[in-house]
Write a protein that binds this DNA or RNA. Structure first.
Lengths: 215, 215
DNA sequence: GGCCTTATGGCACTGTTGTGTCATAATGCA
DNA sequence: TGCATTATGACACAACAGTGCCATAAGGCC
């Protein structure tokens, strides 16, 4: 009862149907529509009933699909053109690192605004379950990468506060706010994000090393 | 045919049924549920068919209801305890004004997180129609009120940029990011918002009046 | 009051979500 | 190859979103 009944679970078969459903859903969601479960199932050559076995609700199916789509988008945006860079000494360099990350992020956010908006709509409803996959965790990783050379200098408290504040300034939520509330274009929105991020970083570094005079 | 057929439209009757539907929906949405059209109609003592005459889709009904609920929340939060204040000369005063606004906003956002989350979910899907009522326009008004004494000093460009950046640091979206991505408590989230807002304001004032030394 | 206009309610209908049940096909193992 | 296990498919079903149609009630105007 406990361990396993050998390999009674047909992992390969399940994997195939699951990824068939998921890729069909990704295609449809990326096309901008909100497909019904029947549509996704048909596109995947799978029974509707089976689709419900893998994704208990339409919402979960579309969430997973949009997160899958976003994953592809963003990794190519940042890792694709070697954004963050390796070396790091001096504040100017850190500023440049962060600026590159903000630029790449806002660029790809603007390019895939619709998809990211539907991801937000699908994930923002309830506080996230600790077990279910979260949105936006990559954002924190990139911020951490950009800030890595200054982490020691900042100290734990200031570092965490800066990461949190930067996570407000970049990403799809920032783009949505600047567009919907402020009516900005994609370019103007990116400039606001970059200015805010740069400013918060500078101030944090100044607080950490008050000896230097400003600039 | 053109002008009017006297008062053929029964404005009062329509107003009554509309507000009956809306207040019933506000009550149900504020309770955290996503009521069906039939539920709202029953609670309002109105036919389901009639509900659809006033709100073409369930979504529009719930959107209007959540926006209505948010409107009530927020007017009490800010106007209730006279937050912004009148006088204003000197940077410290502006900082204090802004800090009060951020505090009031994040406080009420945390208190009504569920309702605000559903408002986001319902309104974030599509870019806002210019004619339909927007979410978050009050946020800009309060930021503008807090910044009013420094508007001239900042100059148009820096002022607009600062308003935009501050709109990223406060409000329900900021709370959601700090909670979901960063796992912060309501208190910690508010502290991040206040620090970021204060920092961005200071830097803007410094840029505008570079003569003074920092601090 | 009577009459005309208009909002409302009731009913029927289609399409979708989500679930239960059971037969059938695919898979892994001997 | 045959067999037990397990995923899948087909069908049925209830609930809900929307919509059309028509009768009826409520309102305004004389």
């Amino acid at each position: 009862m406990a361990t396993t009944k050998s390999s009674g679970e047909r992992v390969q078969q399940k994997g195939r149907t699951r990824s068939a459903l998921l890729s069909a859903a990704v295609a449809l969601v990326s096309a901008g529509s909100a497909p019904s479960v029947a549509e996704v199932a048909d596109a995947a050559n799978v029974s509707r009933r089976t689709a419900y076995r893998y994704f208990p609700t339409q919402e979960q199916l579309l969430v997973e699909a949009s997160l899958e789509g976003v994953r592809g988008i963003i990794s190519s945006a940042i890792e694709g053109n070697g954004t963050v860079g390796k070396a790091g000494k001096g504040d100017a360099d850190i500023e440049a690192r962060l600026d590159r990350v903000v630029h790449a992020m806002q660029q790809s956010a603007a390019e895939n605004e619709q998809l990211l908006r539907s991801m937000i709509r699908l994930t923002v409803g309830t506080r996230p379950d600790p077990k279910r996959l979260k949105r936006g965790y990559r954002r924190i990783e990139w911020i951490a990468q950009a800030l890595a050379p200054a982490k020691k200098e900042l100290g734990k408290c200031r570092y965490e506060r800066l990461v949190s504040a930067l996570s407000l300034c970049m990403g799809i939520e920032a783009l949505i706010i600047l567009r919907d509330l402020r009516g900005l274009s994609g370019n103007d929105a990116e400039n606001v994000s970059r200015w805010a991020a740069r400013t918060l970083l500078r101030e944090s570094l100044l607080e950490a090393a008050p000896k230097r005079t400003k600039k």
